[in-house]
Nucleic acid binder design. Structure first.
Lengths: 155, 155
DNA sequence: GCCTCATGTCAACTATGTTGACTTGAGATT
DNA sequence: AATCTCAAGTCAACATAGTTGACATGAGGC
């Protein structure tokens, strides 16, 4: 089964380039994969996956966020949020309490264990970025940020 | 339901930055989304989705590719490939024939209709990249390529 | 006491992927 | 010619990640 490749389409495929920008297009694909690969492997070892990480990531940066706001930030339905969120609560990676005022909304926070997992998973991603930035220097990094901002703001 | 946001987590969330590289990390996420958003919408109108586009993209750049090689390049199982591939054959966006020699492998090719859809979908993605590159100039684009290559080669 | 609204939950569905087990059929080997 | 190998095709069961729709609960505001 493994003739020229190692595993899972990870090898930047040797495809003919039909357009000038095909290389860039493929780089976005493999870049996304490259950044998330190790983090996903780490999360899988913890019995978690990317949706759980996204929740942990957001709650880490918005302590006391409500469920409704979390749904908005993540861009998924509350039903889709429900299962991964409950798993994180059961595993005590998150806590939810109602505040004295605003008693209607629940406030989510990371526990220490949750913070640790969020940090390690995100660190895998940040280390990949760090290594790449180091390799190209500050000007290259600035160029990267500029391009990515332009693409992201494309909405 | 829509209070401060428009749709689906598309608004680059205002999250506190816990690390220097958090901004870059989020840019990768929103950049990926930004590049694929319009292409996905176009594909959905055609009753297709990203897996179908990936198949069309690869076959366009490797005419006469075999199913086994396609499985390798895409990094999915042949069973996972089976359904989207059959849909593309049924819709006559792809053809498969056995060659006179190498009679065991099937050779995949795009039809004209398939080529048209592949081009339009990929064009949506390339136009987003083009606009971003134009906005930052050649040096920024070069920096972007350098960083993305470093990340992609992270394997 | 009622209305609103955030939250929680249940069910049914779609899509995309996995593994495992098997059949089919062409080519090569003996 | 009989047999073996291997690409391809297919079926079943399952996991994950999402959707929509419907409805229950419970706190706060009026």
């Amino acid at each position: 089964m493994a003739k020229t490749s190692q595993a899972a389409g990870l090898h930047r495929a040797s495809l003919a380039k039909l357009h000038e920008l095909d290389a860039a297009l493929e780089l976005m694909y493999y870049g996304w994969r490259g950044m998330t690969l190790e983090a996903d492997a780490y999360l899988a070892k913890q019995g978690l996956s990317r949706p759980h990480h996204r929740i942990l990531y957001v709650v880490a940066r918005r302590p006391d966020i409500s469920i409704g706001s979390l749904v908005e930030v993540l861009g998924i339905s509350k039903q889709a949020l429900n299962r991964p969120l409950n798993l994180l609560l059961e595993r005590k990676l998150l806590t939810s309490k109602r505040s004295p005022e605003q008693h209607r909304s629940k406030l989510l926070r990371l526990t220490e264990a949750g913070r640790r997992i969020e940090q390690r998973a995100s660190d895998h991603e940040r280390q990949v970025l760090r290594a790449a930035f180091d390799r190209v220097g500050a000007s290259g990094a600035a160029g990267w940020m500029g391009v990515m901002e332009a693409i992201a703001d494309n909405s």
